[in-house]
Simulated assay, not measured.
Amino acid sequence: MNVFKRVRDITVATLNERLEQSQDPVRMIDQFLLETRRAITEAEQLQHHVTQHTRQLKQHVDQASAMRQKREEQAMLALQAEEEELARMALQEKVMYEEKENQYTELLDQNTEALREVQLQLNTLKSEYQAVYSKREYYYARMETLRLQQQMNRRFGNAVEGTPQAFGRLEDKISDWEIEAKALRDLRNGDSYSSSSHTTNGVSLDEELERLRRKLDPDRKEE
């Protein structure tokens, strides 16, 4: 059957070869599923036609069988009535229906085998479709994980790379603040120490103050 010959061209084995060469496995699988779905539809239609034809053949067989039996019974009745000519006519038709029954039985057997093959191939197609669909879900999950990882790298990559530099600049700035604060603290400590001390290097602060006053006022007399 041509439909199944064409279907075998898109089997899972062929799909695996195409996946190895594909940059987008999900898209390739979707294409395979689409083709398989079409093949399943065609196979279901074929199964329907073969089933209908099988029923018709069975009806022909049953009708021929019934007429064969009827003509044989009529021939027996004709012989019992000593109507030999009628018996011959009945037997002639009985032989004709018997031949017809045999012919249709042969066709029915062939068609029954064909229907069995269609059903087997259809079940195989459906099983392959389900198996590939499950694999498609797995590949889609992998591709989505990869896409999200790439998105995260684009979003946070630069920020992560620039973080050490940013902390380095902040460290320098804080160090400057600490140096400035220490200098002010040392200056305050020095003023406090000077104001509480009466001498510096052996010189009286009062003498130094008096010297500055005389410098400012030359007419000032020494006390």
Rank of each mutant, 00 (worst) to 15 (best):
E144I: 03
T54Y: 03
E161Q: 11
E101Y: 10
D24A: 06
R211H: 13
E210I: 09
Y129I: 04
A81H: 05
E84L: 01
E20F: 05
R169Q: 11
A81S: 03
I29G: 01
L120A: 14
N111R: 14
A43C: 13
T124L: 11
T14M: 12
L77Y: 10
A78G: 01
A159P: 01
R6T: 08
L209N: 13
S192W: 15
D176N: 09
N2K: 13
M67H: 07
K126W: 00
E99A: 07
R213F: 06
Q110R: 14
T54D: 07
M28W: 08
N189V: 06
R154N: 05
S197Y: 05
I174R: 14
A159Y: 05
L107W: 11
M143L: 08
Q151I: 04
Q59F: 07
F4C: 02
M152C: 01
F32T: 14
S192Q: 15
E42C: 06
V132E: 06
D219Q: 15
S204D: 12
Y138P: 00
R214F: 06
R220T: 02
E99Y: 02
G202I: 03
N111F: 12
E101L: 02
Q110C: 08
D62H: 12
R155P: 00
E171S: 13
Q52Y: 12
V12D: 10
E178R: 06
E72H: 07
E117Y: 12
E42D: 13
M96L: 09
Q119V: 05
L216E: 09
A141C: 04
Q165H: 08
E222K: 15
Y129C: 04
Q45D: 07
G190A: 14
R213I: 03
M67Y: 05
E35V: 10
T51N: 14
A87T: 00
Q121A: 04
E83T: 06
R88A: 07
Y97I: 02
T51K: 15
R169I: 03
E82K: 09
Y129T: 00
L187V: 04
Q74M: 03
H198C: 05
Q69T: 11
N153R: 10
R6P: 04
T14W: 12
F156R: 02
H60C: 09
K126T: 05
L86Y: 05
S175W: 10
T124K: 15
S195V: 13
N102K: 14
Q149A: 01
Q149Y: 09
G168F: 07
Q121S: 03
Y104C: 05
V132P: 10
R147W: 08
E210C: 08
H198K: 09
V26F: 07
Y193G: 11
F32L: 10
M67S: 08
E137F: 00
V26M: 09
Q130H: 01
Q92L: 12
P218S: 06
H60L: 10
L212K: 12
D191E: 00
S196P: 00
E161N: 06
Y129M: 03
L15N: 06
E171F: 15
E84F: 00
K100L: 10
A75G: 01
S197N: 07
L46H: 06
